[in-house]
Nucleic acid binder design. Structure first.
Lengths: 227, 227
DNA sequence: TGTTAACATGAGCTATTGCTCAGGTTATGT
DNA sequence: ACATAACCTGAGCAATAGCTCATGTTAACA
């Protein structure tokens, strides 16, 4: 689900990520909650670098000390936010798969559903997602998690594609790779820069679905001529 | 050509970007050159935040003072590097268009050429490009430049698509938007994370080209069934 | 050869940031 | 009511980064 680049050079993993205290009482759980929502807002409005821990604590209405009792580093906050996002996305994907196998739509309707679902994910706080996925440095563990989620999504999509007789592709896994990442990248971009003059939201979805459908269902080489 | 997100909140544009001195002698031009290549290397290997100006100067074999005589801020270095990249990409696109209108290939061959060209661009220092385009904060002026380059690329591609009778799409501009950004995003991702187990380089190109060709040439709705 | 402008140097200033810790406040359990 | 643990506070430390400037060196030109 990301376009993040593997970092082999500055992977120092110097900071601990596990909280030094786990909240047990009500007020501390509220603090943790407040810190996370504040962090999301602060990152969204200031970017990663300018999203200082002091600012986050201030916005959350707690002191920096409190923040560092539950998040041992700034990185840990990013990790927590990203894990939330990851769970949300995975949940949506599985929910969608469930709908598809039960509803037995045609390919086009299924793809439309999928694209719209991913669009929804990307339209909520696109800048935050961009910051978390592309701008903030990630510990290797989380990076692996993201890659694993990507791979799992590809396998799931591949399995689903096999259920559609319209799909004439020899290798559903490869096709799934293209589908997953095309939808991911394009919806992300469109959510960030909706070029309304050229293409409004609904038309964008139609175009994207058309491309996917043509790719999956068109016999290869049809309509092509050689120079 | 980017997936960068518009930043409306921290756009302070506090730093000047124009050099305070323009090199006139040979040695200073060499210094500027050295600084730029050093910056590219340092960003590539340390990331944006850890790519300090002192490190860049050290790597370039000059002092920080010299660096700041020609680049008034760290941001200015990023801008210079990105402008280089932008010119390079634009040049490649126009070169490709020239080839296409003169060679009069079929659609598939033309698309293959294009995808391979963009792949080449992304395979050289993908991490640096990622840092420049996604991680480093950009001044609004350069951001507008990137968006303008994107729009121009879409127009160019749209114009070219009209020349191919195989293209059965009603609106070449919208199709061009999808083509441009699909290729951009997917090749970028593939260059960064070449998942060789699932799809090697050449096969990736074939798949991507197949998708684009199917989208552009397949009559819409063929092979699709309704719910 | 002398004068000037271009160029180079690098110690260190200023500002900022992630983070700590010594000491307070609130809840829990008996 | 008392003791203990959970929780909170915020001034400030240590580290670091971007950047400056006083001073020294090299090239251009008369």
């Amino acid at each position: 689900m990301s376009t993040r680049i593997t970092d082999t050079t500055q992977a120092k993993s110097k900071k601990r990520l596990e909280p030094r205290k786990t909240p047990v009482q009500g007020r501390s759980r509220a603090s943790v909650e407040a810190i996370l929502t504040a962090a999301a807002q602060v990152f969204e409005s200031h970017g990663y670098a300018a999203g200082t821990t002091n600012r986050i604590a201030e916005r959350a209405g707690v002191s920096v000390g409190t923040l560092y009792q539950y998040f041992p580093s700034k990185e840990a906050i990013v990790v927590a936010l990203l894990e939330e996002h990851l769970h949300e996305t995975t949940r949506k994907l599985h929910e969608w798969v469930g709908h598809m196998v039960s509803l037995r739509h045609g390919l086009r309707d299924a793809l439309t559903d999928y694209v719209q679902g991913i669009m929804e994910v990307h339209q909520t706080r696109p800048r935050l997602q961009h910051i978390l996925l592309e701008e903030a440095p990630l510990p290797p563990r989380l990076h692996d998690l993201l890659m694993a989620a990507d791979a799992e999504a590809v396998r799931t999509m591949g399995g689903l594609l096999r259920l559609y007789p319209e799909v004439g592709h020899a290798d559903p896994e490869s096709a799934a790779y293209l589908v997953i990442h095309t939808v991911e990248s394009l919806t992300h971009r469109f959510a960030a820069h909706p070029d309304e003059r050229l293409l409004d939201g609904p038309r964008f979805v139609v175009e994207l679905v058309s491309m996917l459908e043509a790719y999956l269902s068109c016999p290869p080489g049809s309509g092509a001529t050689r120079g």
